[in-house]
Design a protein around this nucleic acid. Sequence first.
DNA 1: CCTATAACCAAGTAATTTAGTCAAGAATAG
DNA 2: CTATTCTTGACTAAATTACTTGGTTATAGG
Lengths: 162, 162
Amino acid sequence: MRLTTRGRYAVTAMLDLALNIKKRPVTLSEIADRQGISQSYLEQLFSKLRKKGLVDGTRGPGGGYKLGRSAALISVGDVISAVNEPVDATQCGGQKNCRGENPCLTHDLWQELSLQIQNFLSGVSLKELMDKESKNSGAKAPLTSLTPIHMQVNSAIKTSVF
Amino acid sequence: MRLTTRGRYAVTAMLDLALNIKKRPVTLSEIADRQGISQSYLEQLFSKLRKKGLVDGTRGPGGGYKLGRSAALISVGDVISAVNEPVDATQCGGQKNCRGENPCLTHDLWQELSLQIQNFLSGVSLKELMDKESKNSGAKAPLTSLTPIHMQVNSAIKTSVF
DNA sequence: CCTATAACCAAGTAATTTAGTCAAGAATAG
DNA sequence: CTATTCTTGACTAAATTACTTGGTTATAGG
């Protein structure tokens, strides 16, 4: 799981798409204009998103993109991993023969952690983010926690460990 | 919060350090050798880790690095953000004047999500990862979940949403 | 004091990734 | 037929990452 500005662009664009689609598909030039991202760069990102089935494109006038499935069924993790090349964290490629003494020990731990992050991001859907937005639209209150429940549990664990 | 191979190197090295320190400090050449990372690259990473107080270095023969504080008090988030330059996600720099129509809308949402990831990674300490390791050392059982509790809650949320 | 060790520091470089440009082609609504 | 919009590919500039080189300081042990 990699997390760079590239993934941020993709999530931002997908959110823009999800929020602005009413009836007509949303064009890339609209998104590019609203979010200040190069259209051609968006084209590359959406090419990958389309291949993963996260968006559907229709050509011609009145065309554009729409979500490949319900926003509730698209996770942030889906979007981010769609636009990133898969990385193998271990230099031995899954074999445990890296070193003699401590073979891939910390690699396994990182792999495990990486999986946890992946799981976390798979637990946040576009719909949750959209709902968050609509709840705060027009209001002056700052954005609060997205998914309070497991965050509270998490901080409970944290305080119990410390 | 950025998440690249750079952060992986840092976490891996910190884990190696935490696992292999018994009485003597651990030298970078040891870590470099065990983990297959360039020593000079480690020096750069540890320079940043030291400036954040995450490690203490002692020079001369018998010298090396030790943890700046208890492994229970060092989170994975600490390590990762220590070796990365801070990024401002918005191109307007906190001002809400990016666009006319949808000012920084999705930016706010990304900011919120980014904060969540940060919180999540702040909830996982080096000690948790170490304990995970020692529990599985010598055993053939595969690694299971690190922090089962909030993961279970998380998946519960997920299934309730879907 | 001398020497080896190992942290510290800084500049530069190769490789990779990111972000963007440019130039086409293909589908389709009107 | 034409304008629109996706789709594709190749190419380029910028940024980041990973690594190299060549030092300097501090210190333990002889």
